[in-house]
Computed example of a mutant assay.
Amino acid sequence: MNTTMIAMGVAVLAGVGLVVTLGVLSLLSGGLHFLFARPRVEILKSEKGETGFAFGFKWNAAREPAKFNRIKLRLFNPFGSPTQVEKTVEFSPKSTNFAEDFDMAEAMKQILECDRLDDALLEIEVMASKEGVTHYFSMKVRKFLEKVKSATQTAAEFNEANKVDNSKPVYTIPSRSFIADPLPASNKALKIATNPEFAGQFQSADASAAPQENFAVSKVWIEDGCIVCNACEGIFPEVFEVTDDTCLIRDGAPLDDGLKILEAAEACPTEVIKFNKVG
């Protein structure tokens, strides 16, 4: 009983420890993302003149796949003039870090000329209209104007620095051949009948061999162990008939060609063809 209770206690503690560990890891991951990977806007140097506005936008596209295509500048200045300015610009959808440079015309002019800079607030909204994703960034107008004045990087330079390389790696496959390299030259030759150099020797040997006399057979039979390989029927189909599971001797089979029956018996891999010669 005590052992069972101890085992259950250890199991419960292990489960609680696992849950706590997963929770801590989740919180740590979220904290790191908030500190280092959250979306951010950079104020850049505009090439559109005094009323130009250039910005760069970075975010974790793998964690938040979206195509951003709209930016809005909104001025809140309830104690000064102008009290409110709003300007929205759309551009081609961007799915990775990007920068844009626009002429904001009268809206930018009003923001640059507004008073009570320490009370006025500028809000920047970057939107992906199709996915319904919007990121908000706000700062005092004085700080915004300081960033505009001190910016040195242009939108083109930002895009070049954050360009994504989509080129595919090139793998070189070594060439292989199934044709063997030629054998080294040699003065040796194979002594075989097909080699013209030794053809005469094989012909004389064949000529000296006496032909085997044919004979008649009184009985042919098949013992157990036939593997229905069809070798015998291929040699002497008038005598042998191979079925699905064995071999049979045909009725009225000619038994006067003993050499052919002998050839079939010697070709049988299981040696189950037997016969008796006449006499």
Rank of each mutant, 00 (worst) to 15 (best):
E42D: 14
L27I: 05
G30M: 12
R38I: 01
L18H: 01
A37K: 09
L35E: 00
F34R: 15
L32K: 08
I43W: 03
R40P: 05
A37T: 03
A37W: 01
V41S: 07
K48H: 02
N60V: 00
A61G: 00
G31N: 14
F36Q: 10
L32P: 00
T21R: 13
A62L: 10
H33W: 13
L28E: 11
L25P: 03
G49E: 06
I43L: 13
K45I: 03
E64H: 04
R63Q: 10
P65R: 08
L35W: 13
G23H: 05
A62M: 09
F53C: 12
E42K: 10
F55S: 04
V19T: 04
F34V: 08
G17F: 08
F55Y: 05
S29C: 01
L32C: 01
R63E: 10
L35P: 00
V20W: 07
I43A: 11
G52K: 04
S26N: 13
N60Y: 02
F53G: 05
G17I: 03
L35K: 14
F34Q: 14
L32I: 14
E64V: 10
L32R: 13
G31M: 12
N60A: 12
L44T: 02
E47M: 09
E50H: 01
R38Y: 02
R63C: 02
E47H: 00
E42S: 14
F55V: 14
P39T: 09
V24M: 11
E50D: 14
F57R: 01
L35T: 01
E50V: 08
W59M: 08
K45H: 09
T21E: 06
E42Y: 06
T21C: 08
I43M: 13
